[in-house]
Computed example of a mutant assay.
Amino acid sequence: MSDVNYPEQGGTRRTPLPPGYHHLHEEVPIGRGPEVLAAAGEAITTFRMHRAAGAVIRADAPRAAPGVAVEVSLGIGPLRLRAPCRVVWTVAEEDRIGFAYGTREGHPECGEEAFLAERRPDGSVWFVVTAFSRPAARLTRFGGPLVPVAQRQYARHLGRTLRRLANPRRGGRTP
């Protein structure tokens, strides 16, 4: 039994996303070829991308797998925002690698977020974030329209971080 705090578990795997939530879909180009896909997938599924982007990650396991509990923390000291999650699905296919986690009690939002590296038919590799969420705490309700803006900016920051991690010899630049 899962302890996520929303009923649409796995909702980021399909479209349309569940109604009644803010929807996020961001795509960031990160490079080309199978080596970039493999490096990006490794950075995503081992939480290295999140850590390199400045988040503190505590997880039950070193790699994302269904059922793994994860706490993502951002900020410092008393301003640190803690977000408990649970990995709800993973994918490791020839052209797609990643996972999604769902929010648990104590998370400032309610919903799910997926992080994928995808190789397209032209060989380009993209970081794709898909999410649905709504406020679950006073802080996020108070933040109102600023919360989706912050989520979009954080997704783009993760994409730039992943580009750097997946292309170490190119300095993160796409060809």
Rank of each mutant, 00 (worst) to 15 (best):
T161Q: 01
R86P: 01
P168V: 14
T103A: 10
V147Q: 08
S124A: 15
R13E: 15
A137L: 12
G144N: 08
G11H: 06
E35M: 07
W89H: 12
L24K: 01
G10N: 02
L24G: 04
P121F: 10
H157S: 02
A53N: 10
L116D: 13
A137Y: 10
D60H: 02
R80K: 15
G159H: 04
P175V: 15
R164D: 08
A155L: 05
T140R: 07
A100K: 05
P62T: 05
E93Y: 04
T140F: 15
N167T: 13
A114R: 13
L37Y: 04
A83K: 00
T46K: 02
R169G: 10
R134V: 12
V149C: 09
P19E: 13
T15W: 10
A61V: 07
G144Q: 11
R32E: 12
G143C: 02
E35R: 12
R169D: 12
A39K: 08
A65W: 01
R138S: 15
S73W: 02
R104P: 03
A166Q: 02
G143P: 00
Y101E: 07
R96E: 14
D95K: 12
T174S: 11
S133V: 11
R156L: 00
V129T: 15
R48P: 00
R86I: 04
R164I: 03
Q9N: 07
A39I: 08
G171A: 14
T45H: 07
H25M: 06
R86F: 01
G31K: 04
V125G: 05
P145I: 09
A61T: 05
G123P: 02
V91T: 15
V56N: 04
W126C: 04
R63T: 11
Y21S: 01
R48K: 15
Q9P: 01
H25R: 13
G11E: 07
T103P: 01
A83G: 00
A69S: 00
G159V: 03
E118Y: 03
A100Q: 09
S133C: 10
L24Q: 11
G77M: 10
G111K: 11
L165A: 09
R164G: 07
R138N: 09
E112T: 12
E94G: 07
V87E: 00
R134E: 06
H25S: 13
V91P: 01
T140M: 09
A61P: 05
L165C: 03
E8C: 10
R80T: 15
H25Q: 11
R96S: 08
L162N: 01
G102H: 07
P19V: 08
V88T: 15
H22F: 13
E27D: 05
A38C: 01
H23W: 14
G102W: 07
P135N: 14
E94R: 14
